[in-house]
Amino acid sequence: MTEQNQAPIAEENHEAFLARRAEKRRGRAHRARHEGDTPLNLIAMIDMMTTIMFFLIFTAVLSETSTLEVTSAKAPSAAGGAPSDDNAVKVPKVTIYISSDGFRILDQTNNPDFATKFAGPIERCGGGAADGTKATICPRPDLADSEPLVSRLDYASLYNQLVKIRLEPTWFEGFGKDGNNVVMIGADQEVPFEAIVKTIDTARFFLAPDGKTAPGAPSAASDVSAFLLGDGKSPGPDALEKSKFAVKPAAADPKKTERFELFPFASLVAARPSGG
């Protein structure tokens, strides 16, 4: 049957074939109209959707951009800190200086307690008092010197040291007052921007270490070790990234959570700060 029908089509005049087909379509459309079987013409919609789709694909930004607030680069003495009250305990102006040697933690107020307890090299880096020659937190030992500085810096140990400073009972309350929980950050000229951002990020909030249960609200009486990564000894390279923020229900809406601030504000300094 197929061959019988196709043969005449192939032989007959092409125009006659087209006319017959058009007539057939007209008839079909007529029938469809009368029988309520109208086909929907989707061509215009497909055209429009294709155009919109290409536009959206080309303009789509699939990663979300956020921002980090910092204060402008000023002289170290002018940056951060609330006006001091002579009767109040002097709160250290914590400064982190980044170089190829690692992190140096300094105090702009030259508090001797700070220098003894927190500015000297940590145990892994030799220990002892701060003498200005050794960094407080030396680079990670598991990576060669040829690796990029941003990977070699030991952010987990920096976090631990900042937690110890923040929870020191002498000045815990003082840090809680407005303007005192600022960390100043300086760096050698060649230090890449990524290291600065990672340092600011490390210093902002308390963490619940290694996926453990939240250690509760930090206070002057808090058990410091509950907040330390890697039990405070030698946190592994992933310790920081694996830990989640320590949180509490928000005062305004208990369904939401709030983080505990460590040093949430950062101020970048141009010159290498003095002090220890």
Partner: peptide, 10 residues
Amino acid sequence: RFAATKRGQG
């Protein structure tokens, strides 16, 4: 402010 790509903690 510095622009940064948002990433999750943990």
